[in-house]
Amino acid sequence: MKPAWRSGNLLIGGTITVLILAMALVSLVWTPYPPTKIDIVHKLADPSAAHWLGTDPFGRDVFSMIMAGARSSLSVALIAVLVGAGLGVPLGALASARGGWVDNLVMRFTDLAFAFPALLTAVMITALAGPGAGNAMLAIGIFNIPVFARVTRGAALAVRELDFVMAARATGHGEFAIMARHVLPNISAVLLVQVTIQFALAIIADAGLAYVGLGTQPPFPSWGRMLNDAQTYIFKAPLLAVFPGAAITTAVLGLNLLGDGLRDLLDPRLSRSR
């Protein structure tokens, strides 16, 4: 039997994710104040009806900044995951299909990529190309490639041993067709779960990069930089650090719950045991 809290995961995670997504989308057309608008007279205001989450040291509306920050975080994470999955999945599929030296080459490449922490990769890339959201996407994306390559390879290898794949092979289907028509659809659940997990990790990575000044550049707000800016004000205006921190935590929690829920829902092994 499926415990009730499992479906709860899906519900809570999905709701949080949708809310954050909605916040990011709404920020495209509306925020309470323009997120970069400076109003020095009202700096460091406490939360009030006028400024729901107060204002920062430059008098910018924190709620507006969080909304706009959701946009930059989500877009960096989305592109990064797309880059990672877009290159990693075909690589993993190739490795599993060809085996032999191709497999070895791909796996050693992933070993190599794993040897560099994401942050280090990002620092390297930004040292070469300058800091910015684009380079942060690229850096986090590159870090995601080996993850997807490995997951795809592992899952695909298992599926390729199954009888229906052999049947397809026996009836003369090419490796490419088998991969596209039989293997990938059967591992899509695993990949989808991986996407949500990597998405959450990418949000943390983006916040980390922005925190050290390598991500989204000012004046456009980002959660990580808001945290950094709040640091020296922590004894004066502690809420400044709480709100972006809570935003990051909530987004990551939501995505992880969603990932858990999806895995329970989609994982064929779990469905069999039901």
């Binding site: 970069t36 608008k37 020095i40 550049q217 004046p219």
Partner: peptide, 19 residues
């Protein structure tokens, strides 16, 4: 720079900040 960028925005200038 962040403050000045916001002030310049008020007069229609898009300030690109490069640390």
């Amino acid at each position: 720079g962040e403050v000045i960028a916001a002030m310049l925005e008020q007069v229609g200038i898009k300030a690109k900040l490069v640390p």
